[in-house]
Design a protein around this nucleic acid. Structure first.
Lengths: 340, 340
DNA sequence: ATGAAAGCGCTAACAT
DNA sequence: ATGTTAGCGCTTTCAT
């Protein structure tokens, strides 16, 4: 019943066998052990409350059977489901998984990179907000990126097709007669490069000859707080947009609520399209029209890719992108009707 | 720029110093090193892309500077905020934190206990759903329990006062004329003991001489799915309750939506009180009347307690309970009015 | 200020 | 089937 600091040696002594024998029973690798020895060892383990020191074992075997999943916001159902799906798959293969929450913070992300470099994990499944590819390449453990933050081809990537998803949302708004369309998303990154969403937006705007007013690109955090800020900024604009495409649903739903509080009815006075399709998108009033991303698929695919990569560190990196799907609810006005 | 498998020895060779010197610079413990050696070592580290092997270091020092926070549902804002608050505090003291998501699953929880016993963590902050005190006591690392799952006095506990919070909700319903009050909560546990919420409920019911119909104690998972199941079961009841006290807000809000879908208006045809006060409680229609728990405080206090415990493993265990606070919104009918 | 050497707790040849 | 031994990569006396 003692708990800490009892090691294999003491177990061996109590059981009257050698350390090797104890190791053979605890490492479940099935080294041959006589029934008698097995029993003696198990009894000793129980009596002493022995727990194998994974640090020592891993140091020797170079395997930790631990995977780190790093995401930007565990409270966002999108990310927690991606993590959960990855966990399901990984645990089925004998790995334990822990999750790191960067909370959209560069400092936290950097901390986790440091942790990831420490040799404690057999594998890493990361969503990078900063897109700091230098850090990521130097991680030293099998890694898969969740989300297509960069062009990088040397690292396995599993994500959704941001360009396609963004265009889907924009197209939807365009078809319904919206012309002055804003985009609300975050601009992070050590590489000072515009986000993919933003680039897809710029592309779309120029293709269709829509107004490319810089006021229409609104940079806010992808959080509820960001949504409220978005609405504040919106209301101060001299020429208000017809519609806003929001970088994720958390942001979009918070904006939707803030609009209502300000006396503007989403789906009538202003149109909002979100991204992700989290459960709350179906529950808010009006329902949020959004682009669904396949979270479970994403998590499972990331796990699968990581498993393969852990098996073969030399394998060719892959880039797997899933398309989004528009789900229509009530947050977008149809301006065509208005004209008839 | 090489990444993996380069160790202190190679760095030492390249820098033209001994392993000891390299260790002195990387372990930031400030062993005295000449400026010249320091520079040489840093150059070598950079050139080789060296990263310190934390497994080996921890094996030697018996410190990992890693803490595991285990919670039942990272997607629930209540839990993710508790975790975040704990993380804030712990990181400020130099610890890294990773979170384990048990997803209300006994199997997962057991897995995490195993992980926790492996010596990889300096400290553990756990919410136990199973209440498996045997496992918890044998963990072998400084531990604080989040949530008052058991009477246990040997282990530090930080939680909210469930009995007080439950009575607060029930009292509120009672005052407003509700008499047939149901409770929807989960019954888990290897120790087959009723949950605290349930015990507080039973106590209240008998004090006030309310109907103690076993039908009124509805056991469901504390999830959105549980909320929908709750409403299904509710609708089949021969004698419907006036009001339901729900074990958490996730459950309550899902129930609220399901009631609306079934044509019953919460706050008029049926009354609902939740628990936690997550952001969504203010956003649903009608707003959810619920009992607020101080999440940040809970997380921070758990971290604080854990820090003290890590400093002094022999310290007397403490039990810290925070009271809940009723926040009134629109999901409860006032039946007194009806009578006048 | 620096190096040599011992050892944290385990596993894996290798020998018996 | 079991024990002996070396060593994973690091830190830490202890000398110098």
């Amino acid at each position: 019943m003692a708990s800490q600091k009892v090691n294999i040696h003491e177990v061996a002594r109590l059981a009257g066998v050698s350390k090797s024998t104890v190791s053979r029973v605890v490492s479940e690798r099935g080294g041959s052990v006589s029934p008698k020895a097995l029993e003696a060892v198990n009894a000793a383990i129980k009596e002493l409350g022995y727990a194998r020191n994974a640090l020592a074992a891993s140091l020797r075997t170079q395997r930790t059977y631990l995977v780190l999943v790093m995401v930007p916001d565990i409270a966002n159902p999108f990310w927690s489901e991606v993590a959960r799906a990855a966990q399901d798959r990984l645990e089925a293969e004998g790995y334990s998984v822990v999750v790191g929450n960067t909370d959209w913070s560069e400092a936290r992300e950097a901390r986790y990179y440091e942790l990831a470099r420490s040799g404690r994990f057999d594998g890493l499944a990361l969503n990078s907000v900063t897109g700091d590819m230098e850090s990521i390449k130097g991680l030293g453990s099998p890694t898969v990126l969740i989300g297509e933050r960069s062009e990088e081809l040397e690292i396995d990537t599993v994500g959704s097709d941001t360009r396609q998803a963004t265009r889907l949302a924009l197209e939807y708004l365009y078809e319904r007669g919206h012309r002055r369309i804003a985009i609300a998303t975050s601009e992070y990154g050590t590489e000072r490069v515009l986000s993919r969403r933003r680039r897809a937006y710029d592309e779309f705007v120029s293709e269709r000859g829509l107004p490319a007013d810089p006021e229409l690109a609104i940079s806010v955090r992808l959080s509820a707080e960001g949504g409220r800020e978005l609405v504040r900024r919106f209301l101060e604009l001299r020429e208000r947009p017809d519609a806003i495409f929001c970088g994720n649903d958390i942001l979009a739903i918070a904006a939707l609520d803030a609009f209502k509080a300000a006396g503007l009815e989403p789906g009538r006075d202003v149109s909002i399209v979100g991204m992700d399709d989290i459960p709350a998108a179906a529950q808010c009033r009006p329902g949020l029209t959004t682009v669904r991303k396949p979270r479970q698929l994403l998590g499972a695919a990331a796990a699968e890719r990581l498993l393969e990569r852990m098996r073969d560190p030399e394998a060719q990196a892959e880039r797997l992108l899933f398309p989004g799907e528009l789900v229509e609810r009530g947050s977008v006005a149809d301006k065509r009707k208005d004209r008839r």
